[in-house]
Nucleic acid binder design. Sequence first.
DNA 1: CTTGAGTCTGTAGTCGCTACAGATGGCATC
DNA 2: GATGCCATCTGTAGCGACTACAGACTCAAG
Lengths: 133, 133
Amino acid sequence: MADQAIQIGELSRRTGCNIETIRYYERIGLMPAPPRRGRYRSYGGDDVGRLGFVRRARELGFTLDEVRALLALAAGGQASCAEVRDLAASHLQDVRARIADLKRMERVLAGSVRACEAGQDPGCPLIHALYAA
Amino acid sequence: MADQAIQIGELSRRTGCNIETIRYYERIGLMPAPPRRGRYRSYGGDDVGRLGFVRRARELGFTLDEVRALLALAAGGQASCAEVRDLAASHLQDVRARIADLKRMERVLAGSVRACEAGQDPGCPLIHALYAA
DNA sequence: CTTGAGTCTGTAGTCGCTACAGATGGCATC
DNA sequence: GATGCCATCTGTAGCGACTACAGACTCAAG
């Protein structure tokens, strides 16, 4: 039932993935080249599933290479759960590092904005802070 | 005193900014084209200051366009403090939004990794979560 | 005189899309 | 059957912020 053939526009609508992006994923081999009905790409239920997978993985911040790896592992059955976990754990570390970076920025920015608002500095506190480390 | 002429390598060492990046900044007009001593770029103390400013602003996550604006405002004297504050405040909002995004990812990833570790799912919980939204 | 380090220009690659231009395809309407 | 219009097609170039070469040169020391 999920296998009626759909065109790229419908696939885009169902997955929330941009048409140009779908074609891009095909070009880089992340999505398989589908059969054609005439000149038009013809997708089935599997494609909706796979592209949804890709989208959700991207929303979790995985890179396209990581998504590729996840797709391969997903095809590999349950033996690969440990590998999936390792990939996710290492990505989680990345995410946490980025959060830490951003929080550092946030602290400094918030402090500077407050100082600007206080306005008792002769010049601008943020400009001042940027000029001398 | 800060005005002895230095070469690009020394400027790079003093600011922690990659040589290629310095030339890139010159190309896009973020740093002025310095005079040459022979064929080599010859920098002075002002350049060390300006490039340091750029670096620190970048470390706070400002885009190059924002840095350009900040540099212009910095040259404009103290009247511009309110504009600087607005720029910083709006950037701060961006940073906070990105933190929120990353925290969402973190929560989901951490949950999945835990579920993988628990290992009572027949398949892999993360793969499972990615396949069906 | 040679060697090595530093610098030069110019171009192309990275990531993950996004935005065209210009050509077809297929369906509904007049 | 001509017209309009949307969807789709291919191919290429652009974004931001660098980074990585290749291949030429400059300069000081040994």
